[in-house]
Structure formats: C-alpha cells, structure tokens
C-alpha cells in the first residue's frame, strides 16, 4: 500500500577528489518523515541538493513521484531542463540561509511561485498566501521586506513560500542552523505542524530532540553512506554501529 515519493538509486557524487555521496540508495514513502543526521561533511546537504537537481550527481538516478531522472554522465540530466523545472515544483526546499527574495515583501515571496510557475489566478494565489502566512503565524508581517524580519520569521516565510507550490515532499536543509538558539523553536513549531498534517518530509538537522519526536525513520550518514538507519527509538537508544554511538555521544554531551 505504500507509495514511494522519492527513490534514490546508487547516487554517487564527488567534488574534485572528495567523494561526498557513495552509491547512496533509499526510498521515501508518502507521508514518511525521515530525519537525516551525521557529522558535517557527511553528504547530507549534497543529498538534498541532488534530490532537487540543484546539484548534478556523477552517477545514479532519482525518481520523483514515479518519474525517473538519470545522470547522463556528461554533467547533465537525462531529461530536459523544462522537465527538471517541472519536477522541482513537486519538491519544496527550505535552505539554511533562507534565501528569501530581498526585493519582494513576505507575501510577494510566497506568491512568486504560484504566479510565475503555476500561473494561478490572482485571487487564488493571494488567498493561499494569506492562509499560509496565518499558518506560520506571520499574517501581520505580510507587507514587510525580508530585511525587516528576524531570522526565524524569514525562515517561516521561506517555508510558506515552498508550501505555496503544493509540494508532495518538503526538504529541510539545516533549516534552523543559522538561527539563534531561542528562535529555533518557532521554526520547529511550524515544521511540527507540517508533520501533523501528514506532509512527507526529509529533514537534515542537528536538532536531535526534534528528530526523535517526529521522525518515522532516522538515517545516520557518514562519508557519503548510510551507516545505520531505523526508527528513532532504535537509533538513538540502541545504536548498533560504533560510529553512530560516537556521533550521538559527542552531540548529546555538548547539548546536555
């Protein structure tokens, strides 16, 4: 009964002589929340960027909602750029640095995708943007430019902007890492709402508490490979691999 939204097969990517992803395969089911953890430089962010085709892998394939895209081996993808753009509309992405459009107000940022890509009519896209702003708790900031918003507020607008495309899956690339500690909670709160709504999510993060609470499955990555994966209770309380144990004890010792 499970429907795969994303299927990654044998993905390999290196930057120069640095192997970032090594023969990486996994499948994300509809409605699944997957936490991806691991030391920095373990390939987590590169994995997300490959899934959204922002980075072109060296070999392997990625299927989004059943449509397979291979790497053509010449620095490109097996499907035309227009198809890539279309597949990206199904995948929402939230960046560590927010990347809001600075020349547009909060609501204009949210409307941009529906307007220029989905070509929704004005009433529909504005209503949707207002609803999304309300959902992230920023209705009163809709006419503010990003520069007038705090980091946490910017990231909440960025989440709303991604959701405005009606994505089938959301990718979070260290969405809270650039935020002050006291702000992290407001962004995690919005992400939790998405989990409750049944959104399929891939979350790269260092917030172990959040992953433990919301994830259905946790993947521990190191050196471009899955070292260990499983439900949070198993991975956090009973890690099997020594590298997982080392990583978790290092992380937990400095957060507690």
């Amino acid at each position: 009964m499970s429907t795969p939204i994303i299927e990654i097969k044998n993905l390999t990517k290196s930057f120069g002589s640095n192997l970032v992803l090594e023969d990486f395969s996994t499948t994300i089911q509809k409605g699944e929340v997957v936490g991806i953890i691991g030391p920095s430089g373990s390939g987590k962010s590169t994995l997300l960027r490959c899934i959204n085709f922002l980075e072109i892998a060296d070999s392997g394939s990625i299927s989004i909602a059943g449509e397979e895209v291979k790497v053509d081996g010449k620095g490109g993808h097996s499907v035309p750029a227009l198809k890539i753009a279309q597949l990206r509309t199904k995948v929402g992405m939230v960046f560590q640095q927010f990347n809001l459009f600075p020349h547009l107000t909060a609501i204009e940022n949210i409307i941009a995708g529906p307007k220029y890509v989905l070509k929704e009519d004005q009433k529909e896209r504005e209503q949707k943007a207002r609803n999304l702003l309300e959902m992230v708790g920023l209705s009163e900031k809709m006419d503010h430019f990003p520069e007038e918003l705090s980091g946490g507020q910017q990231q909440r607008v960025a989440i709303a902007r991604a959701l405005a495309m009606n994505p089938e899956v959301m990718l979070f690339d260290e969405a809270t890492s650039a935020l002050d500690p006291e702000i992290v909670g407001e962004v995690l709160g919005v992400m939790r709402k998405l989990v409750d709504d049944g959104m399929t999510m891939l979350v790269v993060t260092h917030e172990m508490g959040f992953v433990r609470q919301v994830a259905d499955r946790v993947i521990f990555m190191d050196e471009g490979k899955i070292v260990e994966e499983g439900p949070p209770s198993q991975l956090f309380d009973n890690p099997k691999h020594p590298r997982t144990k080392d990583f978790l004890s290092a992380i937990l010792s400095h957060t507690e």
């Binding site: 959204n52 753009a85 279309q86 990206r88 992405m93 990347n99 960025a158 991604a162």
Partner: peptide
Amino acid sequence: DAAAALGMKS
C-alpha cells in the same frame, strides 16, 4: 537556488 527550487525556468 531558491528560484530554481520553486521550479522557475532560468
């Protein structure tokens, strides 16, 4: 990146 991720053509 942000524009591309929204599915905008270049």
